[in-house]
Computed example of a mutant assay.
Amino acid sequence: MKMMTSLLVSGAVLAGTAAGACEITLRSADTHPAGYPTVEAVKWMGEQVKEKSGGRICIEVFPASELGEEKDAIEQTQFGVIDMVRASFGPFNNLVPETQVVSLPYIFRSSEHMHKVMDGPIGEEIAKGFEAHDLVVLGYYDGGARSFYNKEKPITKIEDLAGMKFRVMQSDVFVDMMSALGANATPMPYGEVYSSIETGVIDGAENNPPSYDTSGHFEVAKYYTLDEHLIMPEVLALSKITWDKLSPEDQALLQEVGKASVPVMRELWAAKVKESEAKVEAAGAQIVRDIDKAPFIAAMEPVYAKYVTTPELQDLVARIKATE
């Protein structure tokens, strides 16, 4: 009965829900808290959709994993229990092979390079892979650029990483990346990182500037190097089950406004990064901004050889690198 109730309030929902007189209410899930750039961008999208549809269509945003953790939210969206989801690419790596390629270290030269790739033909190609798993891509958001930070010394060149211990996510790619750079990977839960750095279990970790800031890790690891080894796109997707219930006009509207929400999210994210960098520097952290990434990129050759194993994926890597 509980599942049936959830199904009834998803997809095309009649008036009388929390959204008031809307004919259609779309429930959108996010793991990030209220105020986070992805959450605010989908709220902006909701305002635009409501205005452009004359109040017929509303989007109700549920932040902070209110509808479940990311993996559960994705599955519920695939089954139409939830209508929309903002998710990272990681959970799709084993489902959509192309997402594993854009999750490789140093595949993108910069955030701008990532945006051009994902907003162009390659992004459209990857979107087709999501459709095979009952998800319609509305746009690609920015998951930020992950970089190294540690408590010992500024990292200005690849040799500085030799023998150092870094926490990484539970990912074979990340473990292999650290090995290729001459460092030691220590997978562990995110919540254990602060105390592990403080007590010397690890020397440091890697993440984007807002996470480095909000986690308080800058208090125990004052050296942050912007090597940007992972620049991650994220996906905003609609359930195919919900999509099929919409009229062609409403489908076009959601595609239009979903695409328009992308630069809104990216602008909010860029502002958040600047804010966090300024905050940690004011607190005494040292940010190394100017490094030669070429040796770091060259060191990834065995990692790419291990994970880019088919002609199709090799071609995709070549096309990404060729994108200007």
Rank of each mutant, 00 (worst) to 15 (best):
266 R>W: 02
5 T>I: 14
189 P>M: 05
111 S>P: 03
127 A>W: 01
302 P>I: 08
91 P>C: 06
40 E>T: 01
118 M>L: 15
232 M>Y: 08
61 V>Q: 05
107 I>R: 02
114 M>P: 02
125 E>Y: 11
289 R>S: 13
322 A>G: 15
244 D>S: 11
41 A>G: 03
14 L>P: 03
128 K>G: 14
319 R>P: 03
297 I>D: 09
233 P>R: 03
140 Y>V: 04
147 S>W: 01
20 G>D: 13
157 K>D: 13
14 L>I: 05
146 R>F: 07
229 H>W: 15
318 A>D: 14
153 K>D: 10
147 S>L: 04
65 S>Q: 09
308 V>W: 00
238 L>F: 14
178 M>Y: 09
193 V>W: 01
116 K>G: 05
281 E>N: 08
174 F>A: 14
292 D>C: 12
179 S>I: 11
140 Y>C: 06
247 S>A: 12
246 L>F: 10
210 P>N: 01
250 D>F: 09
82 I>W: 05
64 A>D: 14
106 Y>D: 02
146 R>D: 10
258 G>P: 06
142 D>F: 00
201 V>C: 05
90 G>T: 15
128 K>E: 15
262 V>Y: 03
231 I>R: 00
161 L>T: 07
56 R>Q: 12
150 N>T: 08
83 D>S: 14
151 K>G: 03
120 G>V: 11
285 A>H: 02
175 V>F: 09
129 G>Y: 04
23 E>W: 04
234 E>H: 11
165 K>Q: 13
219 E>T: 10
222 K>A: 11
7 L>M: 13
186 T>H: 12
300 M>V: 12
290 D>E: 15
89 F>P: 00
4 M>Y: 13
277 E>S: 06
85 V>L: 08
319 R>Q: 10
258 G>N: 03
320 I>N: 02
236 L>Y: 13
315 D>L: 06
296 F>S: 03
48 Q>Y: 07
92 F>P: 02
141 Y>Q: 06
148 F>M: 10
131 E>D: 12
103 S>H: 10
129 G>N: 10
70 E>M: 14
